[in-house]
Design a protein around this nucleic acid. Structure first.
Lengths: 123, 123
DNA sequence: GATAGCTGGTTTCCGTCGGAAACCGGAACA
DNA sequence: TGTTCCGGTTTCCGACGGAAACCAGCTATC
């Protein structure tokens, strides 16, 4: 059986659901190439709550995309680093971030045009 | 000012939030290269409800990623097609789907390993 | 003539999920 | 003694997503 992300019974769909997530995309992009500690990630991604970050990291760890390493320092520091598998995904999801940053102008002008058309229609 | 998806005040973040969405990824991948009607999309993406599909399509239309064309047939048919901008995004998000289908095996074995480690720890 | 079915939605309802904030223990520091 | 830092967990509430019903207009079937 070949994977088919369009088949809800296929595990590929579950994986896609998880990596097509705004927080996962940002975290993966951030960890690419440089291991980072919990609070450092949190500071680098404003708006991401501790709870959701902890859950996101645990899911990514379960999927074999990153490793969690605790150091017996005081206080305990925990470092998250991408696995080789995670690095391959990071490249892919980073393309999404690059697309957003590249085409943001076109998207915003499309939004303005759409909204002004709505106002016309309502008038 | 350069776009920065990690800045919550930057509109790039809003765009990224939207395209890093599981349903948007599947819909964009489906529409790539071939205009499709509303119910055809719904049938091709099981699990996607009418409400969420309608909302997703309207947001993508607002972002200038696809066009909505109504034909005066009986009953009225509505066709959704990617814009050139949407096509460039479709290529990018399709890489996500391809990644998922390619590495699903590695992810699943990582999950099994993670879960069995948990069971050990609990015992 | 009534019923079912197609089209593309909108509305209603409810469960789940995400975000905000409080709380945790332990140690250094003032 | 109180504060800060670490990495979380817990609690609470509002918002969002999914399931299903409902809608109008026309057609094909019985």
């Amino acid at each position: 059986m070949q994977p088919d992300a369009y088949d809800p019974a296929c595990p590929t769909r579950l994986v896609l659901d998880r990596i097509a997530d705004k927080w996962a995309v940002l975290v993966l992009g951030l960890l690419a190439g440089r291991p980072t500690r919990f609070n450092a990630i949190r500071r680098a991604v404003p708006g991401l709550s501790q709870k959701v970050l902890a859950e996101t990291l645990r899911r990514l760890e379960r999927d074999g995309l990153l490793t969690r390493t605790a150091f017996a320092t005081v206080p305990v520091t925990v470092e998250y680093a991408l696995t080789p598998l995670g690095e391959t995904l990071a490249e892919t999801v980073d393309a999404l971030r690059v697309w957003a940053e590249t085409h943001i102008g076109a998207v915003q002008s499309a939004q303005r045009a759409y909204d002004s058309r709505l106002v016309e229609g309502a008038a």
